[in-house]
Every structure is written in C-alpha cells, then in structure tokens.
Nucleic acid binder design. Sequence first.
DNA 1: ACCTGAACACCGTTCAAGT
DNA 2: ACCTGAACACCGTTCAAGT
Lengths: 225, 225
Amino acid sequence: MPPRPTSPSPRLTRDVILDAYVRLADREGPEAVSLRRLGAELGVDATAVYRHFRDKDALLEAVADRLLFELGERHVRDADWRADLRNLALEGRRMYLGHPRLARIVAASPEPLPSNARLAEIVLDDLRLGGIVDADAALAYEAFSTYVAGSSALDADIGADVSAAWRRRLAALDPEQYPNTTAVAAELYPDEDAAFVFGLDLMLDALAARAHGPSAGVRRGSHGT
Amino acid sequence: MPPRPTSPSPRLTRDVILDAYVRLADREGPEAVSLRRLGAELGVDATAVYRHFRDKDALLEAVADRLLFELGERHVRDADWRADLRNLALEGRRMYLGHPRLARIVAASPEPLPSNARLAEIVLDDLRLGGIVDADAALAYEAFSTYVAGSSALDADIGADVSAAWRRRLAALDPEQYPNTTAVAAELYPDEDAAFVFGLDLMLDALAARAHGPSAGVRRGSHGT
DNA sequence: ACCTGAACACCGTTCAAGT
DNA sequence: ACCTGAACACCGTTCAAGT
C-alpha cells in the first residue's frame, strides 16, 4: 500500500501552469493566451488556475519572473561594462518582443520581481564599473530598463510589412510642407532593431562621456570588493 | 419650411464621438472607456459608433491623431534644437501618461497618422539643425519617439505608492548578494519624471556630440534652404 | 441614412458543489 | 485539498429590424 499513487497524472502545479503559458504564447502568440485556453492546454477547467494564482496578474508576474530569471541565467558577463549592458539590453529586447504584455507587468508589479532585482544588480554593477556616480547610476538604470522594455513592447506590435508602408507614405508627402521628412524618408524604418540599437548606443555613449565627466570627484578604482 | 430642422439634437458625428472619448477617459481613467460606456456617455446605443468608425482601433487612431494634433498646436518652437526636442518630449510624455493605450495605437497604426507626420517633421528639422547626418537623423527620430511613447506608457501604469515600496524592498536586500543595488537603493525612484528626463538628456548629449563627430564629412551650415 | 437591440463569441472571476 | 461547472458582469462586433 504505497502512501501515494505513483503519479496521479501530472498534477497541476505552479510550474506546470507556467510551462503551459509559455508554450501557448510561443505557439499561438502572446495575445492568444486566456485563462480558458490555458485550461484547455492543461486539460483542466479554466478556473483551476485560481487554486495556484490569486488572479491573472499574479500569474503574469510569475511568468515574467521566470523569463527574467532565464534571461539572467543565459547572460554571460562581459568584462567591458558597455558591452555587457549592450548585450543585456539586446537579450531583454528579444524577450519583450516575444512577450510584450510582460513589460507592463514588470513595471507595474507592486514589488520588484526577484529576477528583476538580480538584473538590476548586474546593470548597476556595470554602471558603477563604468565610473558613474551613484545618483546617476540609479537614474540611468531606470532609464535603461524602461527604454528596453517600453520600446521593445511597442515594436512587438508592428506588423512586418508596415515599416515599408510608413516609409512609402512619408516619402510621398508634399516636400513643401514636409521638407525634412521627405528628405530623410528613404532612410526611415530600414529594420526593426537598428533604431533600438542606435538609441541604446546614444545612451551608452553619453554615460561613458559622463563617467569622468566635468562635474566633481571622479571616484575611480575600488568600487566595492 | 426650412430644409433642415434647426438642429435635431447634437447629431452623432466623428468629432462628437472623439469629444466624448476624451472626456470619459479624462474623467474615469483611460482603462474605463468601452464602446458600451461611450454609448452611454453619448446617450446612444453602443453600436452606433460603428456607423462612424470601422472598429475600435480606427476610433483610437482618430483619438490619437487628435491628441497629437493638439500637441503640435500647443508646441512653440524653440530656436535651440536641443531645447525644442526636450520640450517636445516632455509634452509627448504628458500626453502618453494620460493616454497610455495610445502608444500602441500610434506605433502599430498601418499608416503614419497625419499629426504624427507633422511631429516627425519638427523632430527631423531639429535633428538636422543640430547637424545630424540624414541616416542618423532617421534612426534618432525612431529611437526618440519610441523612447517617449514606450517609457511614458509604462510609467503611466505605476501606482503613486509603488515607487517607495520598490525602493524599500531593494534597500532591504542582502548586501552580500546585492552590493550595488543596496548601495544605490536610496537614490532609486525619487520621482516619476526624473529618470525619463535623465535618459532623454543622455540621448540629446550623445546626439550633440555626434553632430560634429569623429567620423566623416561634417556637413556644416546650409542644410536645405 | 442612420440608429436600435438582440445575439454571438468571447473575457476574468466568484462560489457552491463535487470528489 | 484540490478541481468542476454554472453563473455573473463584463467585452468587441454582426446583422436584421426599425424609422
């Protein structure tokens, strides 16, 4: 008489639910996941999820925390602080392009998600390695993470063909009324990621310049042990 | 016998619908607007709106176009290209903080909204005044507008008290595991707009530096008539 | 020509009932 | 202790019917 039957079907569990969520979002798109479809994917009633998560936001927070955790695990630190931040931003962007709804969830979560704190630690380490003073490092971290999440979440909703349509439309404007737009139109929206990387590099350039910047006492060397 | 009765009640019209949308969003929050509530606000059946807009996205595009138009009307150009871009960004942020859903709509619209093109013209004019070469101006415009819209839309969902909660939580982390986060925590999330402005100034700093930058032929003076 | 209202196919969530 | 299933209060949208 074994105290528990070998394994009474997979048994619903937080991790099983998160697996199903990510699988469903990857397969049918992030907009397609509802609690009813999630239940169907799990072979379970839609409301069974409420036995494991308070509500849908709590579920999405757990999904976000898992994906941010995996992002941190995947990431390999680079000795160069700039390269490290750049890589991290691109990895974060890839995540948010696939799961744009999570940008809101991460930002609006009542408390910082545990894996988000780990990533903050890496970003702040890089910034301080770069010689950014603490008050600036805090602001730079916020600007950096909101740029990655916000712009990637927006870019995720852009259909593949609309960039070309926008470029065509802007090029066709009246050159009298829109001299700059028509002049530059050919260069607009060349590819999804180029503008993101351009903006990212602007931020990193300015941070590097500010590191040994005009104002104040340039704390160099020894930043923690 | 007048050919039309003096005015058969306000008569439903695209502008009347847009007025009601903005009024409702301002009064009860942008999440609260549904077609049913909009119908109630207008004293009309919910589905009457479909006689004037193809679907809800088309309605939201019209709302976004109107708000971007008003933003352009309100804006007074500054001779200093940097100051002009900064003001425009702050005005855009204010708009998106009040209407975060419109960020998606503007970005994902199948064609650029007319008022969005007007703003693009201003931004591109500033960038070229600043001496940014065209290929960079195009990328900078994209990065700039996605930063303003994306980060403001995210910030809009942050409850007033959560910043303090985040700061408290991050300060309370284990200093062994989170040396940088705990060191900087006191400076984090001081106020809603500070980080946005910091990131914005980073971009503008780097653009200014790039204007007469290291690479290539520094086209100076005469940038179009 | 324009608006109504029932209806359809969905949502997230609650709660009594089952086992 | 955990899952079910009916039910509630919503959505956006369609379409025949009204005037």
